[in-house]
Structure formats: C-alpha cells, structure tokens
Design a protein around this nucleic acid. Structure first.
Length: 245
RNA sequence: UACUCAAGAUGC
C-alpha cells in the first residue's frame, strides 16, 4: 500500500488523476487494499483537478464503506470545495465533522480562513480565527499568513504589520512565506519602503529571502518609480550568490 | 522514536 500510495500521489500531482483512479481501482482487485491515505490522496487529487463533484462522490463512498473519512479527508475536501467557490458547503462539512466527533485542526481552519479572506470577507475569516482560539486550536504560520494577506489586500497594512508582531509574541515563527506575504502586501499598498524594512528584518532574524520575496520587493519599488533602488536589491541578491530569475 | 495523504506568498 505504502508504495502504491506514492504512485497515486505522483499521478495526481502530474495532473493524471484518471491514471491514479485507474490504479486505485486495480488495488482493490489485487488484494492491496487501499487505506485511508490512498483514499485521501485521490480525494485531494480530484479536488486539485477541480473535480469536486467526483471528490464528494468518493467521500460519500468512504462513508458507506469500511474506510471512513478522517481529519485529512475532511481537510482536503473542505479546501477543495472552498477553492471551487463552495465555501458555505465547506462550512457544512465543518459542522458534519464536528458532529462525528472529529475535531477540526489548524489545517481545516486555515483552509476556511483562507477561503473567506480570498472572497474579501475578512470579518468572517477573523470570526473563524476567534473560533479556533476558543477551541484551543493553535494558529500557525499559515493561518497568520492568510490573514495578513487578506488585511493587506483590503488596505489594512498596519493591522497586517501588527499581526507579524502578534505571531512573534505567540511564539509562532514567521517563515519566508509569511515575510513575503507582508512585504508584497506593503508594496501593493504603496509602502515599498516598509517592504524593504521587512526584507531587512527577515535577514536579521536569519530567515533567508527567496526569489519570490525579492521579486515582490523589486516589483514594488519599480511601481513606485524607484528603479535604482530595485537595482540595488538585485545587486544585494548577487552578493549573496542568488541568481535573479 | 524514522518513510506515504490535507491549508498560505511574487511576476503575466
């Protein structure tokens, strides 16, 4: 099963969901019974291929069979529905899992928060954030990043900047993505100078900026007509032995 | 106290 699961994932990742499904069906015949990871891999693959109807069907089949949906199944499906614009259905699933006694974790909440944030409904995102705190589910760097992203997109860059401090005081360590989200968000709000400060801060904290980070800041500087400063960033990359893309 | 499944970022 172990080995077959890896291949299932491989097919899904390369967009060959159908091949994965074919292999999945063969497993049952060849007495390598699919386990929950096999199922979850397919559910997730279907979701990523925007085939949420089929993902749901498989989910229903799991409920009817021996391999019941677990936390990962719900998490993958909720995210899939959300990304398919069916956020309310995602919330329904949250209810359903709770009724079954499965406790939503940070993956489930982050997926939902991300979805509401992307729809521009930050308030609902924040509500979920409070809800998870109330349930003693600890937000992680992904949760914070989603919120920072949304805050920046709606002009609330101060709040987003504050959130970086919040996470530090909550002992959640910002990673490259978190810093990049904020730097980019600041740029989008015409605050390229602040973005450069974020860049400096992360270096100071020992977090290596990557190409995406640099691109965000460079783009921000250029949009403000500060092309010379942008060039300096390129030079800074060169000094570090980073290849510009 | 290992190995397979789920959530976040740039440019067009």
């Amino acid at each position: 099963v172990y080995n077959v699961n890896l291949v299932l994932k491989g097919f899904c990742q390369s967009g060959d969901c159908d091949k994965a499904m074919g292999l999945f069906c063969q497993m049952k015949r060849n007495c390598v019974l699919p386990d929950s990871i096999s199922y979850n891999t397919i559910v997730n693959g279907l979701c990523k291929a925007k085939r949420s109807v089929e993902a749901r069907d498989l989910f229903e089949a799991m409920k009817a069979g021996d391999c019941k949906p677990n936390l990962v199944t719900f998490s993958a499906l909720i995210d899939g529905l959300c990304k398919n614009g069916e956020v309310e259905e995602g919330l329904d699933l949250l209810e359903e899992m709770e009724k079954k006694g499965l406790e939503a974790n940070v993956f489930v909440y982050s997926a939902l928060i991300s979805a509401f944030c992307n729809k521009g409904e930050i308030e609902r995102g924040k509500q979920l954030f409070d809800e998870m705190l109330g349930k003693n589910v600890t937000p992680n760097v992904v949760t914070y990043s989603c919120l920072m992203h949304a805050l920046c997109k709606t002009g609330k860059w101060q709040e987003a900047s504050q959130m970086l401090n919040d996470m530090t005081t909550s002992r959640v360590h910002p990673d490259v993505v978190a810093y990049t989200v904020l730097a980019d968000g600041l740029c989008k709000n015409g605050r390229a100078s602040d973005a450069v400060k974020v860049l400096d801060l992360m270096v100071q904290k020992g977090e290596e900026p990557n190409t995406l980070t640099y691109n965000a800041v460079i783009n921000g500087l250029c949009k403000e007509g500060r092309v010379d400063d942008a060039l300096k960033i390129l030079e800074m990359m060169a000094k570090k032995g980073k290849k510009p893309d």
